[in-house]
Lab assay of single mutants.
Amino acid sequence: MAEQVALSRTQVCGILREELFQGDAFHQSDTHIFIIMGASGDLAKKKIYPTIWWLFRDGLLPENTFIVGYARSRLTVADIRKQSEPFFKATPEEKLKLEDFFARNSYVAGQYDDAASYQRLNSHMNALHLGSQANRLFYLALPPTVYEAVTKNIHESCMSQIGWNRIIVEKPFGRDLQSSDRLSNHISSLFREDQIYRIDHYLGKEMVQNLMVLRFANRIFGPIWNRDNIACVILTFKEPFGTEGRGGYFDEFGIIRDVMQNHLLQMLCLVAMEKPASTNSDDVRDEKVKVLKCISEVQANNVVLGQYVGNPDGEGEATKGYLDDPTVPRGSTTATFAAVVLYVENERWDGVPFILRCGKALNERKAEVRLQFHDVAGDIFHQQCKRNELVIRVQPNEAVYTKMMTKKPGMFFNPEESELDLTYGNRYKNVKLPDAYERLILDVFCGSQMHFVRSDELREAWRIFTPLLHQIELEKPKPIPYIYGSRGPTEADELMKRVGFQYEGTYKWVNP
């Protein structure tokens, strides 16, 4: 592979701008107003304001973009700056750019259920340069409990009458099928589907988006991507930290609602779906819905739930269990780990287990898709061969690698495990991989909904998990304890083995 010439960040961002501006969906010269509902909250200060700053800094926003914060707290732009700027990672050389960014910011205080507050917000936006005809993007960085009041008031008082209007809704989209349907029906009564952007930030990850290209742009994968060759698929999300004093919020939802029903299920769809007619948003989402419709409700015998306990040999936070978090209700049975087996009941995947695993306070930070292939028929190497695996590593250190057998150097035919490896950090030294939120917010500006969740996708996802969630809430089974920093409950490994996964433990990928 030829040595790549190092590029400056300015040059890299210039390439990104060229890609972005050559499309006809990006209205570079139009006025846009980006409204952050819930501007005083954690999500706004840690993710949304920093993301908008990065896009502005790199010249990736339309030229005439204004940012308006809205929340109940009586704040000023200076207050917003004070709480969000520490997350910007701005350099001293960017000081003038930073001043320009905050000059485009404003803030309006108001209630979430008060019509007069929204009329005041609308008047404020109209007073901005060309504000009355601007395109408006409303980001709901809010708890779902206020979605209905907020969307109703936005629709009645704050819509642009000339430009387009788009609304970005953060997960969780309800707690179960019934609450999700209620919320979807409410929002759909106010906005068209092409105006609604239900954001799952995992769909903005580079390697998640790469799944489609790997599958449908490489001839070698087509013939082997089926039940005849693939023994099982494992989708993993692991965090090495616990709730760390923020367990009160987590306890309301648990690990299945927080990660599995959305992030992991979306990745499953991209692995299992048929080739779409095109890369058009609805063509892709149509195929994802077909996959979900082929999955039956989760069966309790295919589920393992766990909850982390303190590690007596650990240090600091590792010595504390979930129930030691003062914000967690006493005696909570909320799971911090889950392993679930699903089956896609169609011709391509009949009988292939899709194993979804996620948890907190585990032994490493990792998100990946792992396809394990069947054993080689007619073994001539005296059971020395391990199964081939194709691994798409989402985070950290984005990579695609194939675990395969090669001859060990020497005189004899002794096979050993090795890999074919594409590590993004080595291959793409001159490429700026956008943060997931950067990519998705740019998608909203461009009107691309491919990486957002459609209402029928959402409904099918909740259909699969709601009976299990209701059973857990009714019966309150005690989750299996696992030690902070471990791989999780051993019962999860036993479940995976029972459905056909072979864990060798003899080879570990190392970032080159």
Score class of each variant (00 low, 15 high):
6 A>C: 13
6 A>R: 14
6 A>L: 11
7 L>P: 10
7 L>R: 12
9 R>Q: 09
11 Q>W: 09
13 C>A: 11
14 G>D: 15
14 G>M: 11
14 G>C: 13
15 I>V: 13
18 E>P: 07
18 E>F: 06
19 E>P: 12
20 L>E: 11
21 F>I: 15
22 Q>H: 08
22 Q>I: 15
24 D>V: 12
24 D>Q: 06
24 D>W: 07
25 A>E: 15
26 F>R: 10
27 H>R: 15
28 Q>T: 08
30 D>K: 15
31 T>Q: 09
31 T>E: 12
32 H>E: 08
34 F>S: 05
34 F>Q: 05
35 I>K: 03
36 I>F: 00
37 M>D: 01
37 M>Q: 04
37 M>V: 10
38 G>Y: 03
39 A>R: 04
39 A>T: 01
39 A>E: 01
40 S>V: 03
42 D>I: 00
42 D>Y: 03
42 D>T: 00
43 L>S: 04
44 A>D: 00
45 K>Q: 11
46 K>I: 01
46 K>N: 03
47 K>P: 01
47 K>I: 03
49 Y>Q: 03
49 Y>W: 10
50 P>Q: 08
51 T>W: 03
52 I>F: 09
52 I>M: 09
53 W>C: 01
54 W>V: 09
54 W>L: 11
54 W>P: 03
55 L>E: 03
56 F>M: 07
56 F>Q: 04
57 R>P: 00
59 G>S: 07
59 G>E: 08
67 I>N: 00
70 Y>S: 09
70 Y>Q: 07
70 Y>G: 03
71 A>L: 03
71 A>F: 00
71 A>Q: 03
72 R>H: 02
72 R>C: 01
73 S>V: 00
73 S>C: 06
75 L>H: 11
76 T>R: 13
77 V>R: 10
77 V>F: 13
77 V>G: 08
77 V>L: 12
79 D>Q: 15
80 I>T: 05
80 I>C: 07
81 R>Y: 07
81 R>L: 11
82 K>G: 10
82 K>S: 11
83 Q>T: 11
84 S>A: 13
85 E>K: 07
85 E>R: 06
88 F>D: 05
88 F>G: 00
88 F>A: 04
89 K>Y: 09
90 A>W: 12
90 A>T: 15
91 T>N: 13
91 T>G: 12
91 T>L: 13
92 P>E: 12
93 E>R: 13
94 E>I: 00
96 L>V: 13
98 L>D: 00
98 L>G: 00
102 F>D: 03
102 F>R: 07
103 A>Q: 15
105 N>I: 09
105 N>V: 11
107 Y>T: 08
108 V>S: 07
109 A>P: 13
109 A>K: 14
110 G>W: 01
110 G>F: 03
111 Q>P: 10
112 Y>I: 02
114 D>R: 11
114 D>V: 14
115 A>K: 15
116 A>K: 11
117 S>D: 15
117 S>L: 08
118 Y>L: 07
118 Y>S: 05
120 R>C: 15
121 L>D: 03
122 N>T: 14
122 N>L: 07
124 H>N: 11
125 M>L: 12
125 M>N: 08
126 N>W: 07
126 N>D: 15
129 H>K: 15
131 G>L: 08
131 G>F: 08
132 S>H: 15
132 S>E: 14
135 N>E: 06
137 L>D: 04
138 F>C: 03
138 F>R: 02
138 F>S: 00
139 Y>F: 09
139 Y>Q: 06
139 Y>M: 08
139 Y>H: 03
142 L>H: 03
143 P>L: 02
143 P>T: 04
145 T>N: 12
147 Y>Q: 02
148 E>W: 14
148 E>N: 09
148 E>H: 12
149 A>M: 11
149 A>V: 12
151 T>P: 03
151 T>L: 10
152 K>Q: 14
152 K>H: 15
153 N>P: 03
154 I>N: 01
154 I>C: 10
154 I>K: 04
156 E>N: 13
159 M>N: 10
160 S>Y: 06
160 S>L: 07
160 S>E: 11
162 I>C: 11
166 R>Q: 00
166 R>H: 09
167 I>A: 06
169 V>I: 13
169 V>H: 03
171 K>T: 03
171 K>N: 01
173 F>K: 04
176 D>A: 00
178 Q>W: 14
178 Q>V: 14
179 S>D: 07
179 S>Y: 02
180 S>R: 05
181 D>K: 07
181 D>T: 12
183 L>T: 04
184 S>Q: 11
185 N>Y: 12
188 S>V: 09
190 L>G: 06
190 L>V: 13
192 R>Q: 10
192 R>T: 13
193 E>S: 07
195 Q>M: 11
196 I>L: 11
197 Y>S: 01
198 R>E: 04
198 R>L: 00
199 I>H: 04
199 I>L: 03
200 D>M: 01
200 D>W: 03
202 Y>K: 04
203 L>M: 03
203 L>T: 04
204 G>T: 00
204 G>M: 02
205 K>M: 03
207 M>D: 00
209 Q>N: 10
210 N>A: 08
210 N>P: 01
211 L>T: 06
211 L>N: 00
212 M>A: 04
212 M>L: 11
212 M>K: 04
214 L>Q: 11
214 L>A: 09
214 L>C: 07
215 R>C: 03
217 A>S: 14
218 N>V: 04
220 I>G: 03
222 G>Y: 10
223 P>Q: 11
223 P>K: 09
223 P>E: 08
224 I>D: 06
227 R>N: 10
227 R>W: 05
228 D>N: 10
230 I>H: 04
231 A>G: 09
232 C>F: 01
234 I>T: 15
234 I>C: 12
235 L>D: 00
235 L>M: 13
235 L>S: 03
236 T>F: 05
237 F>V: 12
238 K>W: 00
238 K>H: 02
238 K>I: 01
239 E>F: 01
241 F>L: 05
241 F>D: 04
243 T>C: 14
243 T>A: 06
244 E>P: 08
245 G>T: 08
248 G>F: 06
250 F>Y: 15
252 E>S: 11
252 E>F: 07
252 E>H: 15
253 F>R: 03
254 G>Y: 01
255 I>S: 01
256 I>Q: 05
256 I>E: 03
